[in-house]
């Protein structure tokens, strides 16, 4: 299969995914528009309670205003980063619908990747609209990038990080070749990823041992580090380091996914056919 054909098929599959998510209006609003908004707002309320009880002006190097700004940017990172419910590969494997793809002349991965592309494009659009509304409605509170370059670097890391998280979800989904507890694993992995990425609290607020470990993991470079670059707490050297961590992670995840796929294919009995 040539690259051109891959890209053509990917474009058609992205269009197909857009049609799928737009079929039901309420589903579209909840899953595609409101997705990622609720948790950071809850965390802002939690931080409000913590800071109002504390006598210190800052906790772990973050003042209340800074943490609110951090959480607002988290909201947009969460929107752009693909979530654990966005794929249905494990259901397809478990219920046997997946069988049909095995006799078709294409790489199955094109379909989940198309879902990632569709999801990312749509979320970037929705995030852009929400960002504009927020900046116009709350100009004093709304976070602004320290520079255009910092914003571009943050977005780059966030998107590559999202693809790493997508690969991780896909690997967990492929475990459906063996297990029927994929959704439980996804919920667990999602919580751990949120914690490691700094989506619940900035990694720099965590104990030093965790901080030192998390900076070598891709989730950190998908959320916390891009936000700190965006807000001017980290610089270009960190961006380059992040690119390296993400590139190595992507390479390792891709190898692991291929391995799980090949082993799973030998095991698949095509249930439900």
């Amino acid at each position: 299969m040539t690259l051109a054909r891959h890209m053509r098929l990917l474009a058609v599959a992205v269009d197909y995914e857009f049609r799928k998510v737009a079929v039901f209006r309420v589903g579209f609003l909840v899953r595609e528009v409101l997705n990622g908004v609720v948790e950071p707002l809850v965390m802002i309320a939690v931080y409000h309670a913590i800071y109002s009880q504390s006598t210190a002006a800052s906790l772990g190097g973050w003042s209340y205003d800074e943490i609110v700004q951090y959480m607002l940017v988290v909201m947009f990172c969460r929107k752009v980063i693909i979530h654990n419910r966005a794929l249905d590969v494990s259901t397809q494997i478990f219920e046997g619908y997946f069988t049909k793809y095995l006799v078709m002349p294409f790489r199955f991965t094109v379909l989940p990747v198309a879902r990632w592309v569709q999801y990312t494009l749509l979320q970037l659009g929705v995030a852009g609209i929400l960002w504009t509304i927020g900046a116009l409605a709350l100009p004093d509170v709304w976070p602004r990038p320290v520079s255009g370059v910092a914003a571009a670097q943050a977005l780059t890391l966030c998107l590559i990080g999202s693809f790493c998280i997508f690969e991780m979800h896909l690997i967990v989904h492929l475990l459906a070749f063996w297990l029927d507890v994929v959704w439980s694993l996804l919920v667990m992995s999602n919580f751990i990823t949120s914690f490691v990425s700094g989506a619940i609290m900035p990694v720099s607020q965590m104990p030093a041992a965790l901080r030192d470990a998390f900076v070598w993991m891709f989730p950190y470079w998908a959320v916390c580090a891009p936000i700190e670059i965006f807000l001017g707490r980290l610089g270009t050297a960190d961006f380059v380091r992040g690119l390296w961590v993400l590139a190595l992670s992507l390479f390792a995840l891709d190898l692991l996914r291929r391995f799980v796929w090949a082993r799973g294919r030998h095991r698949f009995a095509g249930s439900g056919m």
Binding site: K20, V23, G96, G272, M273
Partner: peptide, 16 residues
């Protein structure tokens, strides 16, 4: 050059 039709499993998308 091959095709498979499964009476109990759709190959078309349910909502489209």
């Amino acid at each position: 050059r091959l095709s498979v039709v499964m009476g109990q499993r759709s190959q078309l998308w349910w909502d489209l």
